[in-house]
Simulated scan of single mutants.
Amino acid sequence: MRALIAAAIGLAAALALVLTITAIGVPTGKTSPKPLMTTVPQHP
């Protein structure tokens, strides 16, 4: 029974966090125009 109560409290806390972040909104910003290096450059 304690595990069920703990799971319900955790779920409620997670839901409250998601709703809070949704209410605040996504921070404004832009992505970098520079591409990310995904591989090591090959030296000749």
Rank of each mutant, 00 (worst) to 15 (best):
A3L: 10
K34I: 05
P44A: 11
P35D: 02
T28G: 10
K30P: 00
M1Y: 03
A23K: 10
H43A: 12
T22F: 11
M1L: 10
P41I: 05
T31Q: 10
T22V: 14
G29F: 09
K34Y: 05
A12N: 08
L15Q: 07
A12G: 10
P44F: 05
G25W: 04
R2W: 03
T28N: 06
P44Y: 02
P35Q: 05
V40R: 15
P44V: 07
Q42S: 11
M1H: 07
A14P: 00
T38V: 10
V40M: 12
S32E: 09
T20C: 08
A12H: 01
I5T: 06
T39V: 14
T38M: 09
A7I: 06
V18S: 04
R2P: 03
A12P: 00
L4A: 15
P27L: 03
Q42K: 15
T31L: 11
L36F: 05
P41E: 03
G25F: 02
A13I: 06
M1W: 09
A3W: 13
I21V: 15
M1R: 09
I24R: 10
A16T: 07
Q42A: 13
Q42D: 06
A12K: 07
T31K: 08
A8T: 07
T38Q: 06
A7R: 08
A3T: 10
I24N: 07
A3C: 10
A6T: 05
I21W: 11
L17Q: 03
V40F: 11
K30T: 15
L15H: 01
P41H: 01
V26P: 00
T20F: 10
P33L: 04
T31I: 06
A8D: 04
A6I: 08
M1F: 06
A3F: 12
I9L: 13
V18Y: 04
A16L: 12
A14W: 13
A13W: 07
H43G: 05
P41N: 06
P35K: 09
T38S: 04
R2I: 04
A23I: 08
V40Y: 12
I21N: 03
I5Q: 03
A3Y: 13
L11V: 14
M37K: 10
L19K: 07
L15P: 00
A7S: 11
A14M: 15
A12R: 08
I9W: 06
A7D: 08
K34P: 00
M37R: 10
K30H: 12
L15I: 14
P44G: 07
A6L: 13
V26T: 14
G25H: 02
M37A: 14
I9F: 10
T22A: 15
R2F: 07
S32T: 09
G29R: 00
A7Y: 04
M37D: 06
H43E: 10
G10V: 08
M37L: 14
T28R: 12
V26A: 12
I5G: 00
P33V: 02
T20A: 14
V26W: 13
T22E: 09
G29I: 03
A14Y: 14
A7W: 05
P33M: 02
Q42I: 15
P33H: 02
V40I: 12
A3S: 14
V26Q: 14
T28M: 09
H43N: 04
K30R: 13
A13C: 09
H43C: 09
L19H: 04
T39E: 14
A8I: 11
T20N: 04
A6Y: 03
G10W: 06
P41F: 01
T39P: 00
P35Y: 04
M37G: 06
L15W: 05
L15D: 03
